[in-house]
């Protein structure tokens, strides 16, 4: 059963002559408990895709169906982990998560809410840093807080917009393992947007390439059949992993080349043929 679905969705920004179409005729369906990774080059409209799925933006054409309902505004049942963490800098780690918990579980007792915050802080191993402000944390720790905040809202769908994009390779690996572990525990429907093919294969059940924009569309889907839990060192020698990785990378390169030639052709359209006119001809008419 699909929880979240995009049906023939197009999104453009601006109006009149300055309109840029970012996404064109996108179809995507997330099944209950599925982990889907959208892989694309930077600037291909990945964030727009996440914003449409989360209900922060609405499509110009087509529709977004969340649990069968059309174009629902954003809410805590679709948790978003933002690319740049979006933590409130004047609140501590605990307070940032508490704000979300207080809002979503307003009917629970103070103790229950406190417990909930502590549980998720512990899940991302940040208990020692609970009283710190975001500016005192490293990038990886901030993204953990952001993840904990989203998980603590207990959303039906978890949308992650390049959550590890700004981190160094080592921290990235640690957090990838953590995300995999948490997903095994919570079994949420997850959509992960990333520019890292290895990350997508390591984490996802299905990989969906986003063809480069403007007017980006989704490419063909790759199913990831590798058994879980996946071990990154073992995967490096796995034949299935290597093949899948090559296929995805090749596909991405091909669509990028296609889009480049298409753009080049669009720019180099031959000039229209003009009739040979001379001033004398005008006077004769």
């Amino acid at each position: 059963m699909s929880v979240l679905e995009l049906k023939n969705v197009s999104k453009s920004f601006g109006s009149g002559g300055g309109t840029t179409e970012v996404l064109r005729s996108v179809d995507l369906s997330l099944d209950e408990g599925e982990f889907v990774a959208v892989v694309g080059f930077s600037g291909s409209g990945k964030s727009t895709l996440v914003n449409l799925l989360s209900g922060l933006l609405f499509p110009n054409r087509g529709e977004v169906l969340f649990k069968g309902e059309k174009n629902v505004a954003a809410g805590p049942d679709r948790g978003v982990v933002f690319q740049n963490y979006s933590l409130l800098p004047w609140l501590s780690v605990y307070e940032n998560i508490r704000l979300a918990v207080d809002q979503v579980f307003a009917d629970q007792s103070v103790q229950e809410r406190d417990q909930r915050v502590r549980h998720y802080v512990d899940m991302v191993s940040l208990t020692p840093a609970m009283a710190k402000k975001p500016h005192e944390l490293s990038g990886g720790m901030r993204q953990r807080v952001s993840l904990a905040r989203t998980l603590a809202m207990s959303p039906d769908v978890l949308l992650m917009d390049e959550p590890l994009g700004a981190l160094d390779a080592l921290t990235r690996a640690v957090l990838q393992d953590e995300i995999a572990k948490i997903w095994e525990q919570e079994k949420k429907t997850v959509l992960l947007v990333t520019n890292d093919v290895d990350e997508a294969i390591l984490l996802a059940d299905r990989i969906v390439p986003l063809k480069p924009g403007p007017s980006a569309t989704l490419g063909k889907h790759f199913s990831v059949q590798l058994p879980r839990p996946r071990d990154r060192t073992a995967l490096n020698h796995d034949a299935g992993f290597k093949e899948l990785r090559n296929n995805v990378v090749n596909y991405l390169n091909t669509v990028r080349k296609e889009s480049k030639t298409a753009q080049l052709e669009a720019r180099q359209k031959p000039l229209p043929e003009l009739p040979q006119l001379k001033p004398a001809d005008l006077r004769a008419q």
């Binding site: 922060l56 954003a74 809410g75 805590p76 979006s86 004047w90 609140l91």
Partner: peptide
């Protein structure tokens, strides 16, 4: 105010008064 912080408010479905109190005022302080 940072647009991302307003997005947080939207995802949390904060009502206007809570949004002003918890997000807008501290950020503009």
């Amino acid at each position: 105010i940072d647009k991302d912080h307003l997005n947080v408010a939207k995802v949390l479905k904060l009502d206007t008064w809570t949004r002003i109190r918890k997000i807008i005022i501290p950020s503009a302080l």
